[in-house]
Structures are given as C-alpha cells and as structure tokens.
C-alpha cells in the first residue's frame, strides 16, 4: 500500500490518533510528550504511531496534511494540530470534548 494511503487508513479507522516521536509511555521529544500527556489526561483511548520507528511515515506525514512538524493529532480523520494547539485546546477544555465525541461516534458506527 502507498504510504499516503496507509496514513489515510490510519487516521480514518482511529477516532483519535497521534503521530509522535516515541510512544506515550516513552516519548522521545518534549513536544510529543506534552501532547500525549494532554491526551492521556482526557481519559479517552487513543491510537499512536511512533514516527521514529517508521521512517516512511516520518518522511511523508508532513505532506499528507501539509503540516511541517511533529507531533500531529488527528480526530475524526482530520488534523487538529501539533503540540501547541493540542495543549491550548486541552486548556480550554475542548480537547476532551472532541475526543469523547469522536470515540462515541465510532461506537455508534461499529
């Protein structure tokens, strides 16, 4: 499968997914770490891809959604933003709501 198709499949089949450096348990970048922490706090299950372990995705994700940096958070198949936006949304209480709604939507359709 083409790498862009692979990414598309990932963001569409997971209601919430983060592309990060490292894993939520062992992040390898301060920005990825903070974004994953904010998502963990929301208390909604989410998927992750460690871009350091998948060079093809590391190289191609920036052009997938025309977003130059990591981490990248997708909810309902759409790019929400990087670390700073994710944290800002968490601070406003919007992140948890978005994650909960996406998870609920997935429940309904499955």
């Amino acid at each position: 499968m083409d790498v862009l198709d692979r990414i598309k499949e990932q963001v569409e089949s997971n209601p919430v997914i983060i592309y990060m450096k490292g894993t939520p348990q062992m992040p390898q970048c301060g920005f990825s770490s903070r974004a994953a922490e904010a998502m963990k706090k929301a208390g909604v299950e989410f998927a992750y891809v460690n871009v350091l372990a998948d060079p093809e995705i590391f190289e191609n994700l920036p052009r997938f959604a025309d977003w130059p940096t990591f981490p990248q958070v997708y909810i309902n198949g759409e790019l929400v933003g990087g670390c700073d936006i994710t944290l800002e949304l968490a601070e406003r209480g919007e992140l948890q709501k978005m994650m909960q709604e996406a998870a609920a939507k997935k429940e309904e359709t499955s």
Binding site: Q28, G30, S33
Partner: peptide, 11 residues
C-alpha cells in the same frame, strides 16, 4: 505565553 518543553533528544 506557555513555556516550551525540555528536549528529550528524539530524532
């Protein structure tokens, strides 16, 4: 504005 995170050396 918020503080930036410390580096964890990844990548």
């Amino acid at each position: 504005a918020p503080e930036s995170p410390p580096c964890l050396d990844g990548g």
